[in-house]
Amino acid sequence: MSRELTYAEAIREAIDLAMARDERVFVVGEDVGVYGGAFGVTDGLFQKYGAERVRDTPISEAGIAGVATGAALTGMRPIAEIQFMDFITLSMEQLVLQAAKLRFMLGGKVQVPLVVRTPAGAGTGAAAQHSESLENWFVHVPGLKVVMPSTPADAKGLLLASIEDPNPVIFVEHKLLYRTKGVVPEGDYITPLSQSEVKRSGRDLTIVATSLMVVRALEAAVRLAEEGIEVEVVDPRTLKPLDAEPIVRSVCKTGRVLIVHEACKTGGFGGELAAVIAESEAFDYLDAPIRRLAGLDIPVPYNRELERRMTPQVDDIVAAARRLVREAR
């Protein structure tokens, strides 16, 4: 059975299912208890599971990451919430130098099965310190997995997979997706990590997009189809370890690729995707240069119009796709 849920409800349902079947799973973070989380994602879990397993912390992001790492190391399955992805900068040491490395550094003798859930992204008028998209910082760190769901069904299945995974997972949610609705299967299911998915098939152009940009790319694809341009949209879903094969296969088919993400362009995940494609057999099939459409290299501005211009919008994707289809190598 399936029914429509919001992205936030789908995440909550995943946490609820995991907590119900596994006593080792617990939620820890700022205002996750009675308050229900800054974006309401953990709403109701405190009432169901109590203060021990839905644990409010002081404002201590390094401490939260440390608690999650230490607990994961000794038999628990923590789900830590970092209230805004911007604040994860305060957790970096524990996540990057401890959680990510412990298994390798100790000769493979330990596991660190933790999940850090964190809302990223601009579009809420929260300005430069509450709008970051820092996923690629973590992609660069061996030992971490990085997951970015774009739909409610993926959010649920990928979160359940992340909780079951024996490794540290950075689970990046998007604030503007929380209220989006989609069909979500009931009950327990897993959407495997490291499986890219073709969200829409097309022959003229591949768009590889992440998180909110998948939704925008799909909207753009509908408009482009009206002009006779058939776009294939591929969502990596797990940025690391990346399942490159569906992306490469798609580019081999279309010969053109546009990469879209919200994070700043320079040093963003798009550069990695472009390199993966360029190094693959898809290179020989390219009819035009690989193009990236990404956030401007500026802090997220407060002003409504400036903020809108900072990140790729549907119009921008349509225009970039149109240009790319007309380009010849």
Binding site: V67, T69, A71, L73, T74
Partner: peptide, 11 residues
């Protein structure tokens, strides 16, 4: 030092 709080919580 941050990790020990997690180990303690786990216990």
């Amino acid at each position: 030092v941050p990790m020990v709080a997690g180990v303690g919580l786990s216990i």
